[in-house]
Nucleic acid binder design. Structure first.
Lengths: 155, 155
DNA sequence: CATATTATATTAACATGTTAATTGTTGTTG
DNA sequence: CAACAACAATTAACATGTTAATATAATATG
């Protein structure tokens, strides 16, 4: 082989994982009081932002695999965090929306989440924070087609 | 509340997750031929790099939770990818090392892994790649204590 | 209209993530 | 030495990641 084993300390995947772990730690702490998992939080956040949407779009926006969403939706429906309805025009499709209990939880934690998000922005500075989001976006450039231009960050 | 719900499209955790997903996709493809998971690949990579080590250090270096490593080690030992021995000086501790079969798999894929790593470096350019690794490191600055200064990246 | 094809969702099976409880070992303190 | 505390590893229980197989609904094709 032409390459000896290089150090894992400069591995991009591992750096991404470590960074995510650091960022999620305070968020997990915040969420522990709500009984929501990170994934459930993302689902509710997306639904609160987008309104009712089909499960395929929801899974993509919330960064979840479809089978995971299927299971989560059953649980979250039982807890009345979301509602599930069939699309009357295409009964294969499922429409999911946030329910009042879900909205309540989101509303009660948005401020705390925003504070955490700002703490990371402050940790590295506004300019570098934007650079980081830009570079991360370029890594997944041809993979997904996210062309949003919003400027406010959150968790 | 003082904050309305901000867009998930500028969320740092989600950007980190999407970036990681993009980076890992080709690596997963490469690994599918070996029967190794990402996690098992990381364990073998760290062991090949560090030599025999105690499970606590291994879990930290490979970014795994301890219970996950316990289960994985049993599987990987059965497949003779690693060896497990008790520390004779402290029989609570376990020492794990890579076995010949594990080394063989690593060796057979190091070049492919290096090629994938380089493709991402090329995708955003050398300078921005270093900037990205730097910024990611600063996010987890006070969280872990990685002070390595190696320069070659890999997956 | 019957069949095949495609799309959507669910289910299955297993690995891993995650937290908490449990077991075994070492160290400490009386 | 005995009891206790601290540490390391395992196990348990449940959620999620992941891939493959299956079921159901819509569409195309003859």
């Amino acid at each position: 082989m032409t390459n000896s084993l290089p150090p894992t300390t400069r591995s991009l995947p591992i750096a991404l994982m470590r960074a995510r772990e650091s960022v999620m730690a305070p968020i997990r702490d915040m969420l522990s009081e709500t009984g929501l998992s990170e994934q459930q939080w993302r689902v509710l956040r997306v639904l609160a932002e987008q309104g009712e949407m089909d499960s395929h779009s929801l899974a993509e926006r919330a960064c979840l695999l479809f089978p995971s969403l299927t299971r989560m939706a059953a649980t979250m429906n039982a807890k009345e965090l979301i509602t599930q309805t069939r699309d009357p025009n295409d009964r294969r499709r499922q429409l999911i929306a946030i329910a009042p209990a879900g909205l309540t939880i989101i509303a009660s934690r948005v401020e705390a989440a925003s504070t955490i998000a700002k703490s990371f922005r402050n940790k590295i500075g506004d300019e570098d924070f934007e650079t980081l989001l830009d570079l991360l976006g370029r890594l997944s450039a041809d993979t997904d087609t996210d062309t949003d231009t919003d400027t406010e960050e959150t968790v």
